[in-house]
Each structure stands twice: as structure tokens, then as C-alpha cells.
Amino acid sequence: MKATARITAVAEAGRTRLVTLRSEPPLLVRRTGPRHAAGEVEVHLVGGAAGPLGGDRLRIEVTVGPGARLCVRTVAASLALPGPRWPERAGPRSPADTQSTLDIHATVAAGGSLRWLPEPLIAARGCDHVSRSLVDLESDASLTWREEVVCGRHGEDPGDASLHSTVRLGGRTLARQDLAVGPRACGWAGPAVLGGGRATGTLLVVDPLWTEKPPEAAVLGPGAARMPLAGGPAALAAAVGGDLREVRAALDRAFT
């Protein structure tokens, strides 16, 4: 399945208005907060089908205009699954036939704010999923960006999943992270990477108010830390845990 969703929020007279809300199955976008809001406008991605499935090409484009405030959530976890059985008569498969991809491109203009708080990606057995996020922030934009991965459903070994994320601030790279789990990733379950933890996540916060003084580094428990970044008013919280609840709890308290 190939689908693109598009969300554009602009500020008008001190309020945020959604000017584009484009859905395409299985990416269905629903406004869940007020249509015009003085504060933040909230939308949810409503899963139209289980997935992503092998072979899916999904794309989400988010644009936040100057001074606008948007929060994007999903109603449930994404479950990356292998694609349908490949018919032998169709000939040899290429990675494009079996891999699922999700490309997210977000831009936030000066004074704008985006909070990207989806539920986790669950890498089910046999999946082959690649997620790529590119966030472009004008200087003076705010961002909260959460990414979480759960390695397999209950009692299941995960398939291959990789998450690549890039956040640029004023055209300069602020944060680059690639995380890979699954049978093709070397050493991912070992003590240098996840140490047997089945869930991991990061929460990146960029806040222009931190220009003078970003939050200090802090150890948030045996598997979590908050780390101020080098390239701007930003900090990343990272957590590894036995399950999603542990990871979410650590990320939720990272900036409070």
C-alpha cells in the first residue's frame, strides 16, 4: 500500500488553524482538539489497518507555520508485520517488495511548536521495517519528538526494524540517531545496546527558552538518562527497559 498524509497548521490572529488535513488509507488523520485553539491544536493518526505491512510505502508530511502550535498523536501502537505471502509465480522478491517504509518530514517555522507523541512501533516477528524522520526547525522553533520501539509482541523475537532520525535546527544538524533491532542488526540485544531490554525510546526536546541554559545531564534510573545536546537549546532523554511501560515512565519524568 502506498499512502501519504499531510497536516499543515498555521497561526491566524493568535490562534492555530489546520489548513490541510489530508488522509489516505491506511493513514487517516483526525482532528481531536478544537478546530481553532488559542493553545495547541491536536490531531490523531487513526490506524486504518494493521500495519505497516511489508511492501507498504507510507509518508507523513507535517508543516507548522510561524507561531502555530500542533500536537500529533496516534491512537494505538504501530505493528510492523511481514508482507503477505509472496506468490512463487511472481518471481524473485526485491527488498522493495518485502520492506515497509515510513517517511516522516516535518518542518516547524520560527515561533512554531510541534509535539510529535505517537504510540510505539512494535517490531513483530519477521517484519522488515524502516522508518526515516527528518525534522527541519527554523531557529526559535520548539519541538518535542518521541520515538519508541518494542522488540516483538509478547514472548516473540522481533523482526528487523530500523529508525533513522535527523533533526536540523537553523540548517545545522542538531541530532542524528539510527537505531536498529532484529536479526540483521549486530549486537543489538547485547550489553552495549539494549542489554536484553525489550523496549527503548527517546524523547528529544528543543526549547528556545533553553538558549542560555539547557537542562543539566541527569541519570534517571538504571536504564535512562537525560542529556543536553551540543548543537542548540535541546536535550535528549533516552531509556531502555523491560517493557514499554518502564520506558514511557522514564521519558515522561525526564523533563519534569
Binding site: D178, A192, V193, L194, G223, A225, M227, V240
Partner: peptide
Amino acid sequence: ACSAPLLDIGAE
């Protein structure tokens, strides 16, 4: 940019 969360967390 391959990340190893426990190397980061452990270093802190």
C-alpha cells in the same frame, strides 16, 4: 549515526 542507548546511558 548508529546509536547504542546503553552506551549513552551508561556513560552518564
